[in-house]
Design a protein around this nucleic acid. Structure first.
Lengths: 339, 339
DNA sequence: AGTTAGCACTCTCAAACCTTGAGTGCCAAG
DNA sequence: CTTGGCACTCAAGGTTTGAGAGTGCTAACT
């Protein structure tokens, strides 16, 4: 009985605060919600909630504001993902459906997410680490230079140029390509280092320099280039908080400029198809300690290839944002699998 | 005589205002600069300068602030590009010298520019429109799918996949590649549409579908993909102005998110090796009307391939910024020509 | 002529002060 | 356990005041 109402009060507080961005008091609560009790009773509940750390008062005589912990409880137990309206779904479908190549898909996705949520959107390119090599090709550029092209199943194409001490020999290249093809085709990137471990043993000694150079280059691509690509959008929405809310966006902008931070942000997405939410101080990075991050993975059912999401203030509309992120992730998954 | 001192006064005002970001008064001017006259005399000059529109007073009893027109005069006549210190040159050299591939060069450049100038940095990838095709290659992906790879002299590699109605024939492809090679190798992109105009005539009728598809795809790459790539960095520096100066960064962030705007910004760079400066309202876009843009082209001596620059407040350190932008552009040019 | 000192005037900024109102916590009664 | 009543607290907004910075003007000086 009492427990139940307290949760209802917390829910109402979060909803009101998200809507108005102003501390919410007991009077307003009973006005705007059918709680069936008087403000005084609500005050008692609020005192209890504050005691337990779910809400806090900015100062003696203001209303209450949810804490990170309060939002957490709200997200975990009190909010349900609301399905998008058919119109929204159709809009997403149409906008993303027009995309031509991978770059286009990523670009459109980030703009779409930013626009729908009115927040900063973050979209990661399909991760090489979780992709498979589809093909490998060589293009001799000059006598001593070879371009290696890796075609990846997610649609990405990686290329790299190798400098070789000795002139390239066509037949050797063909041989190398054939064997490499067998060795790495349709294999996950993560398994490639192991697969190429003793690869050079199959070749005669005089072919080793070239083989080594090529393998080294591939390994470099496979490991180094794993610093994935990320696109960002909607940063101008940040300026809004700055004015309305008294919070500096500098640290946030700084964090968003760091690829490393973004990668970790998206990388920490729970390994499930569900949407993941990190609230305020749950974020590892100090600069993001007053923001919430809503992410989801996309890709095949059980084999996500990357993540996307949005970064917003902690007083974000969790239900709406979560559903949008989830929907967009699903659409991107579908579009990618169609190619 | 009188003209000369007035200019000196304007110069001093700009310098002081850039340094302090506060309106500068007659008293402070004579204190900080050796003008050899009394404040009262300066006041007369200031009144004249205001009359002519070079400076303005925020309110009755504050000092003066340069107008866009004032900055313009300062940049054109009163400031000289100061050479970088050897230490700075060395720093640039070392940092950019480590770059591996084109992506790396661009990424490092934008970070470097942002860090050196403490402003938002904008770097455009070498423009395809001003590049030359170095090679063209085909990779059959499936029976009906062909990947076309364009290797560009600036280091970019463009790829595109063509869907073909008929199965691909190896010999036809080889033939096509050979002829295309002759037709477009070492030619500027801009000339390609013309060169491919009647290209299909050389082939037998039954080969036309494939030839058409390939040509269409190349033309598409050549024209559509011309929406160039641009990287952005140092946006967090914007937050600083927001706090110190009372100017909203929202419109600026919005403008910076629009590829189109950025492209135009960089595209308008004067066609010379010199640094170009656009001040305040000289910028076409309303969102950037309180910012200054300092850009320079980079590339070969007489054949620039793209532009880079920074976006900052109108009260930016023009001399320092211009020299930094110029130096970075030169280094990037050198590094690119080395490959 | 051009330059200077002197002076009255204007206007912003910051501090001090007051008032208002929202919201709380507690208590005693239902 | 709930509720109405009441005293209390505190932030926010408005007003007043004083100080300070800077200007424009005039009259005298070189």
């Amino acid at each position: 009985m009492l427990e139940e109402r307290r949760l209802a009060v917390l829910k109402a507080i979060v909803q009101d605060y998200v809507a108005t961005h102003e501390p919410v008091g007991s009077k307003g609560l009973v006005d705007r919600h059918q709680l069936g009790v008087s403000p005084a009773t609500i005050r008692n509940d609020m005192a209890a909630l504050e005691e337990e750390g779910y809400i806090t008062a900015p100062h003696t005589s203001a209303g209450r504001v949810p804490t990170d912990q309060g939002y957490r409880l709200f997200v975990d137990q009190l909010s349900q993902i609301k399905p998008l309206s058919p119109a929204e779904r159709k809009g997403i479908d149409r906008f993303l459906g027009e995309a031509a190549d991978l770059d286009d898909v990523m670009g459109r996705t980030v703009r779409l997410l930013a626009q729908l949520t009115k927040q900063v959107a973050v979209v990661q390119y399909p991760s090489l680490a979780r992709s498979h090599v589809r093909r490998i090709e060589f293009i001799p550029v000059t006598d001593h230079k070879l371009m290696i092209i890796l075609i990846v199943d997610s649609g990405r194409v990686e290329q790299r140029i190798v400098d070789c001490a000795l002139p390239l020999q066509e037949d050797l290249l063909a041989e190398l390509r054939a064997r490499l093809s067998v060795a790495v085709s349709d294999q996950p990137f993560s398994s490639i280092p192991a697969r190429l471990e003793n690869f050079d043993q199959e070749f005669p000694a005089d072919a080793r320099p070239l083989v080594h150079a090529v393998i080294a280059s591939i390994l470099e691509t496979v490991t180094e280039k794993l610093d994935e690509r990320i696109v960002l959008g909607g940063t101008s929405h940040l300026a809004h908080y700055n004015q309305v809310f008294a919070m500096s966006i500098q640290p946030v902008l700084e964090a968003l400029e760091e690829q490393v931070v973004l990668l970790k942000l998206l990388g920490e997405t729970a390994d499930s198809q569900k949407v993941s939410v990190r609230i305020g101080h749950e974020n590892e990075f100090a600069g993001l300690s007053s923001t919430s991050v809503v992410t989801s993975q996309y890709g095949k059912e059980n084999a996500p290839v990357a993540s996307l999401g949005v970064v917003g203030p902690t007083h974000i509309d969790y239900a709406g944002t979560m559903s949008t992120v989830q929907a967009v992730a699903q659409y991107v998954s579908r579009i990618l699998s169609e190619n």
